[in-house]
Amino acid sequence: MLNQINILIIGLFLSFSCFADSLQSKHVEKTTGITTWEIKTQGVNFSLTQILPEQAKAFYVNRGFTLVQTEAFASSCVYMTVMRNDNAPGTVHFVKSNWTVLANKKPHLLISVDAWLKKLKKQKVNNSALLAFRWAQFPPEQEFEDGGDWNQGMLSIGLPAESIFDLIVRWDINGKAYKTTLRGVSCAK
């Protein structure tokens, strides 16, 4: 009986430690239904907020795209991504191509910004619109100093509407690898 209580206490302690170390939250905007998933872990804050296809289309039409040119990206399960180094033990460095999307327990490759640009150039999107597209994306690679460096940008997951996936986000600090997983994220309708 005593052993069982001890195991229970240790289990509870470990669960609490993991929870405290890596807090994931979900927020649904009442009026729009747009959902945000956010995780705070190891001094890093990371969040994904759904961008509805119509929002993405409107954004890029205003940057010089035609409606047809916006279709593929807008329907590729796009998120407003925020990553911030609040108080990690050093400079957070990431390469986005190292991140993994897991859908139905299978890894799914993120479409790179360069691949999108190549595709859009074939559709004859004009140069200023391409420039806006490039810089509106979450950076392919970045360094965030502790104390508040951050970025906000779009991230295309490349899955169909309403897909559910986990995103494994990886970074390193002075060569030491870190990761966190945002679980149960869903693509907008």
């Binding site: 905007e29 407003m80 104390g147 951050w150 906000q152």
Partner: peptide, 16 residues
């Protein structure tokens, strides 16, 4: 609208 939709509020502007 997209800014308003971000979680309970906008990501904070930092000052370092």
């Amino acid at each position: 609208v997209s800014g308003m939709s971000h979680a309970a509020g906008l990501p904070p502007l930092t000052h370092n």
